[in-house]
Design a binder for these strands. Structure first.
Lengths: 410, 410
DNA sequence: AGATTTTATTGCACGGCCCGACAAATTGTG
DNA sequence: CACAATTTGTCGGGCCGTGCAATAAAATCT
């Protein structure tokens, strides 16, 4: 979308955001990510002229995605610029996160606002039963949507690897799944319009952190998530790393300790075996499950020796693995999510030691390692973003051909 | 790399190739990569119409980049489509590869044709002296260019990590360098117009394999290069993985064997220490240097025990590391280059064992592992491609503002 | 030689965007 | 309260890149 220029060189549409049809998506993306924005700010963000922005905003208004309101705040001299607000109900995504011991659901509106939440604590193991349970849980959320809300699709985060083409969960060891056509099953059970996209929870966590969490605007980002296993999502040059089959970033079975325990993947000393939350709980003498993490937190706060030792040891292995990944991906920021996010305070010291042990920070600047800012909802919000991405790629088209649902991986 | 067909809504320029000014670059890129192409083929490749292609080809002709010739071959009924040929001398890159024990130079024309080669066997160690030597070696190559040849820049591959912004070689342990402003030094010594771009040899090897080697058209590719150290370049979703500082893919210091030898990076059991060609020679009881590799090849062919054992052992460690990387990057193809390419036949069996040991090939299809198809010139050709990339991003602009050289990393 | 097939050329139209001029809305000042 | 200064929305004009359809050109087939 380059253009001939006559005056000063105008900045192109924001770097990293590739050209979209009509720039309509570009404008809507700004609003979706940055919230209400004045027209003038939009011209600065997109590099388009006032005329073009006016035209685009008008079209977005006609499509129902935005509404303009008078600027409430005093800005200084000059005519005030009206503020363009995204309308959450104009595009609603049903987001689902399949963790190991729980399922979270939420309806997320344009702009990223969570409209309502729901949670299943002890979900079924069998895929078919689980899908039915999810559909039942989704019904009240969807019923509670405001009138004239427009559902644009469903995003699903799953602890396992999802195939890009069709949303089949190839392998989810912690759920005991293999080759489950989750996308198609959910699509049939829910009967919702729009896309149904399935992605790995860590990949989606990375996406969410980059969009709405601590990694806003960071081009190269690593997200490490601890559920029962250990997941890792990578964003490089602003786009999620996918790989041929959509399995890129599966770092859980990277070698860190050949003297370590055998892993159920067949190899020994995998990162997950040494630093996964299952190992963390076992090392602290606790039972597996989310209740175990609560208990661990209590014991660590109380200064119990076994708990602290477990956190220290696991933190070190976590850091060693992260150090290797830092060398491989050269990220600007590493975000620790889910269980690791919760326990970040206790893991941090030994984790930083581990990172320093292996990463060649001498080469570049030191990497920043932080905890997630999305209080355990990273993967859920990421699942929603997956669907919003499709919408933003062609907002007008999404409205036009609504009755053409597509199931795919993320 | 699907292509557009008439009837259905036309796809924009080939997916993965972002929109370029005027689509001019897109057309020139097709010609640069695929060689002489008929106008009709160009419409199929780019998805543009005949009218547009005609206009673009005319403009490229006026700029001197291409010339049309009558179709020499019998095609069938109908009016024959003229074939558009890239003119090599219209854009010439001086490519330089700084290996450990040698320096290679070549002039490469548009379309990827190597116009002339040169080689320094025992180069100087000191950066300043080396740069002078390179400039002296480049002079006859440049003098031998055909009349009216247009030099568009210089591409440099170096065994070390080059900073993206300015082409400073941050760290090149095998050359004993640290913070050498190679880009600026070479630019000053050569005095050539256009860009001067510096990149890591493995990254550039990956680029070359994807453009002109065994990885043509492969979207996700891993290139493993053995010079003295061990380098690794990654191409994901068609674009080179860069990272914040341009250090992504630096897998040489990934942990593979904690029981292994200490590495000069400070850690122990790094991949490079176990599988680098230095280790290979040491294990076979040979002295370091390229002569050692020749000798190793002879002894292995003769069936000498120590040589075979070394190849087997190193091949296994190589495979283990590759297996981990396969999990991390999910490539479609792994290419072994430089020393590993030469010795591929002997390394292959134990290497495949090692890969199987760690990579979860059960998940997706098996990864293909092959030797480089560019007979030791991958990095050199990749360095040229680095510069061609800039040219193709805006061919008209490159002609317009020639006197504006820019030094940068690749 | 004429029919058929495939392709290049040409003129036209449209969409997306920039530009310049003008009107509108606000703040600051006498 | 009127005026200047400032900033912004609006409208008409125009350019550029590309698609579309009609026409001319160059080959093969019969």
């Amino acid at each position: 979308m380059a253009r001939a220029r006559s005056g000063a060189p105008r900045r192109r549409v924001r770097a990293g955001r590739s050209s979209r049809r009509h720039s309509l998506g570009g404008v809507l993306e700004c609003l979706h990510l940055d919230g209400p924005t004045s027209r003038t700010q939009l011209t600065e963000l997109t590099g388009l002229t006032r005329s073009t922005i006016a035209e685009l905003v008008q079209e977005l208004g006609q499509l129902g995605f935005v509404e303009e309101r008078a600027a409430p705040l005093v800005t200084g001299p000059g005519r005030p610029s009206p503020v363009v607000h995204p309308r959450p109900q104009a595009a609603v995504v049903l987001a689902v996160e399949l963790a190991v011991a729980s399922v979270s659901l939420a309806t997320v509106g344009l702009g990223g606002r969570v409209l309502a939440r729901s949670r299943l604590a002890r979900p079924e193991d069998d895929p078919a039963a689980l899908v039915a349970e999810i559909a039942a849980a989704a019904a009240p959320l969807l019923a509670a949507l405001p009138d004239r809300a427009r559902v644009v699709g469903t995003g699903v985060a799953v602890v396992g690897v999802a195939r890009s083409q069709d949303g089949v969960v190839e392998l989810a060891p912690n759920l005991g799944w293999r080759g489950v056509p989750l996308g198609a099953m959910l699509d049939a059970a829910l009967g919702l319009p729009g896309w149904l996209l399935v992605g790995n929870d860590a990949d989606l966590g990375a996406l969410a952190e980059q969009r709405r969490g601590v990694g806003r605007g960071v081009e190269h980002l690593l997200y490490v998530s601890g559920e029962v296993g250990l997941g890792c999502g990578v964003i490089s040059s602003g786009i999620p790393l996918r790989g041929t089959h959509g399995f890129a970033g599966e770092a859980g079975h990277m070698l860190v300790n050949p003297d370590g325990r055998p892993c159920r993947c067949g190899a020994t000393g995998c990162w997950e075996t040494e630093a996964g939350s299952a190992r963390l709980l076992a090392r602290a003498g606790l039972a597996t499950g989310s209740a175990g993490i609560d208990e661990l937190e209590v014991r660590a706060a109380a200064g119990e020796a076994a708990a602290c030792a477990a956190l220290c040891e696991v933190g070190r292995w976590l850091g060693i693995g992260i150090g290797d990944l830092v060398n491989l991906f050269d990220p600007q920021l590493v975000v620790l999510g889910s269980v690791y996010g919760r326990l970040f305070g206790w893991l941090e010291p030994s984790l930083r030691d581990g990172v320093g042990l292996r990463s060649m920070t001498a080469m570049g600047g030191a990497v920043e390692v932080v905890r997630s800012g999305l209080v355990g909802e990273a993967a859920l919000l990421g699942a929603a973003e997956l669907v919003f991405d499709r919408l933003l790629a062609d907002p007008a088209g999404a409205v036009r051909r609504r009755s053409e649902p597509r199931v795919a991986g993320g």
